[in-house]
Amino acid sequence: MKKPLILVTNDDSISAPGIRALIEVMNELGTVVVVAPDSPQSAMGHAITINSMLHLNKVSAEGAAITEYTCSGTPVDCVKFAVNEILKQKPDLCVSGVNHGSNSSINVIYSGTMSAAVEAGIEGIPAIGFSLLDYDWNADFETFKPYIKQIALEVLEKGLPENVVLNVNFPKKKKNELKGIKICRQAKAIWAEKFDKRKTPQGKDYYWLTGEFINLDKGQDTDEWALGQGYISIVPVQFDMTAHHAIQQLNNWNL
Rank of each mutant, 00 (worst) to 15 (best):
P75R: 02
M114N: 05
I181A: 10
V59T: 13
K80A: 12
P75C: 10
I66E: 08
N57T: 15
N176K: 06
P171T: 12
F141R: 02
V164D: 03
E119G: 07
E62F: 13
A116V: 00
E154G: 14
V155A: 14
E177P: 04
D77M: 09
Y110C: 02
E162N: 07
L156G: 13
E123H: 09
G101N: 04
I151H: 10
I151L: 14
I109M: 09
I109E: 07
N57A: 15
T74Y: 06
S131G: 11
C71T: 07
I109G: 08
G73S: 09
N84C: 13
V168K: 03
S52G: 13
E123K: 06
Y147N: 09
K58S: 13
G73T: 07
N163S: 10
G124R: 01
I50Y: 10
D77V: 11
V83W: 03
H100G: 11
M114G: 00
F170T: 15
Y147M: 09
G112M: 05
F170P: 11
F81A: 10
C71K: 01
K179R: 12
C78N: 03
A82D: 10
S131M: 08
K149V: 15
P75H: 08
I109R: 07
I122C: 05
K88Q: 13
V95K: 00
K172A: 14
F141Y: 07
D136S: 05
V118A: 04
G124F: 10
S115Q: 01
L166M: 13
G129R: 01
C78K: 00
S102N: 02
Q89C: 11
G129Q: 04
P91I: 06
N138M: 07
F170E: 11
L54E: 08
F144M: 05
D136V: 04
S104A: 08
S131H: 06
N107W: 04
A61F: 12
K173W: 07
L166N: 03
I125C: 10
P126N: 07
A82Q: 06
G129W: 01
E68Q: 09
S52K: 10
K88T: 15
A120E: 01
G159A: 13
Q150V: 12
S111D: 00
M114R: 01
D92R: 00
A139F: 02
V164E: 01
Y110G: 00
S102D: 04
N167C: 06
I86R: 00
G112A: 10
V79N: 00
E123N: 10
G73L: 05
F144G: 05
D77E: 07
